[in-house]
Design a protein around this nucleic acid. Structure first.
Lengths: 212, 212
DNA sequence: GTATGTGAACTATTTCACAGCT
DNA sequence: AGCTGTGAAATAGTTCACATAC
């Protein structure tokens, strides 16, 4: 717990958690780092090293208890309790995130969505309420929301982020293709789908060059 | 061009490209690495180092020509021509990706979508045709599609990937939360939204611990 | 003076090697 | 024998320092 923990390690812990849930579902009680790592296509050294930043979770000569490792990783990631999130922007992407089942499994509940469009607002979509932006502060306080997910067009992203920060949000998941300029005490995770997609064309180009 | 190029460099090139397009839009013709880097909140050393893997693009004492650097990065990333992509799974996420304008700006055109659902299929949505899975091979060949985007539920992802590979697709952008087990000559880029989101809760937990 | 380009220094991360437990 | 845990070695990636050009 003393050394600096790589950010990549944190991301991988989520992967471990999901894989473990998968194995638990299959009634596997004890799992080795090798098996888990093979499943995720990483090295078993890496897996054990990642875990070692946080403590000792396995038994030498045996392996890891699936259930107990799940519990431990949940605790490390803060997923042993429920977090409230809201989605800003109720377009296709906002909808996709709002209704994605996987978040709930991992302790993140989408409590509300916000949109500027008159005809999306004040409706219930499968237990989710969509509010106009003006209600943001009230809803965030009432529903105890700690995480904001930005799924608005890029022009509106900065304003959405500022608004979220003003409402006391300390963690933002930004899917808009802009670098947000907001106070640095707010934790921001950017996921830029088109930049990610673009890295594929680079490799495709190399592949074609190699073949010709 | 001889040294090994970090994968992160490739991703950052996409960011540079987008920022440059933004500056060009604002009629800025010459830009320094410092200004571009500040805008993207990275170090100017990093930016110059990244570019140096591919050649020399600036003028000492002056800076970079916006237009020429855009052209150069497009060439590096293979974005100076059009790539055809298809989306498998026409749920909310699939729709979001299908209609996202940003891809087209970057040379990636979504040519078709596929879905198993009877009532989504064989319809036109804003110039995009949604086909049943059986038509995949035919459509991919006809439309010269090189990139497959997987936006199906996790249970269906592996089959979708295998199918795409069988149709000759060499690059897959996988948004389903599973590690695909397909031939390694297929380039796969995984973007797992819920694992990314989860890394936020870890930092939120740390933040709370610090404050108490 | 200002800005790029790049080898060298530094830092971070991954992989290895092996001690220790079952 | 099989598996975890971890310091040490190796590798990868970032930052620095300075030579060069405008």
């Amino acid at each position: 717990m003393l050394k600096k923990i790589p950010e990549e390690t944190i991301t991988r812990l989520s992967y471990y958690l999901r894989a473990l849930l998968f194995f638990k579902e299959k009634d596997i009680t004890i799992i080795s780092s090798k098996r888990l790592a093979d499943f995720l296509k990483i090295s078993h050294h890496q897996l054990r090293k990642d875990l070692s930043y946080f403590g000792q979770f396995g038994r030498k000569g045996v392996g890891y208890s699936c259930v107990r490792l799940i519990e431990s990783i949940r605790e490390i990631l803060g997923l042993n309790r429920e977090w409230g999130a809201c989605v800003v922007g109720f377009g296709n992407l906002g909808r996709a995130l709002s209704f994605y089942k996987g978040f709930k499994d991992e302790g993140i509940a989408i409590k509300a969505a916000f949109d500027i469009s008159e005809n999306k607002v004040n409706k219930d979509y499968a237990n989710l309420k969509v509010y106009p932006l003006e209600k943001m502060e009230k809803v965030i306080r009432k529903e105890k929301i700690q995480i904001g997910i930005i799924a608005v067009p890029k022009e509106a992203a900065e304003a959405a982020a500022t608004r979220l920060a003003e409402c006391g949000i300390k963690a933002i998941f930004n899917l808009a293709p802009v670098k947000l300029d907001i106070p640095k005490d707010v934790i921001v995770k950017d996921v830029d789908l088109s930049c990610q997609l673009t890295s594929l064309t680079y490799h495709l180009k190399l592949l074609e060059a190699k073949q010709s």
